[in-house]
């Protein structure tokens, strides 16, 4: 019985994973395509040197800190990413500056 429950739960999780595979690649992480290019505000950031500098710094800090343990995750909506980054700040003792920079980069 326990085994059946565990296998059922795993099947559900794997189905959600397969569903994720079937989604368009617009959710792919920053490691492949860089930040999302949706929206005029993002385009404005890309067009400015200041925005590029912030993005590059954020990417560097992201790769240096997050890459210590795992591969680059996909982008999540900003409110989810804010939670994830707070969790990782505690878990991986990421500095306050790094956390802010990574959050900006991941929510651009």
């Amino acid at each position: 019985m326990k085994m059946k429950l565990v296998i059922l739960a795993l099947v559900l999780v794997l189905l959600s994973a397969i569903h994720g595979i079937a989604e368009p690649h617009k959710k792919d992480g920053p490691s492949k395509d860089g930040p999302s290019k949706d929206g005029a505000s993002v385009a404005a950031v890309h067009n400015s040197g200041y925005g590029d500098a912030i993005r590059i710094e954020g990417e560097q800090r992201f790769r240096a800190n997050c890459g210590r343990c795992h591969t680059a995750p996909q982008k999540f909506p900003p409110r989810m990413m804010a939670t994830v980054v707070r969790h990782m700040r505690v878990r991986a003792t990421i500095t306050d500056q790094d956390m802010q920079s990574i959050l900006r980069y991941l929510t651009q």
């Binding site: 794997l14 900003p78 409110r79």
Partner: peptide, 12 residues
């Protein structure tokens, strides 16, 4: 847009 929300995450 910056309010963190509760998340259920994990691994299987």
């Amino acid at each position: 847009n910056e309010r963190p929300i509760p998340i259920l995450t994990g691994s299987a």
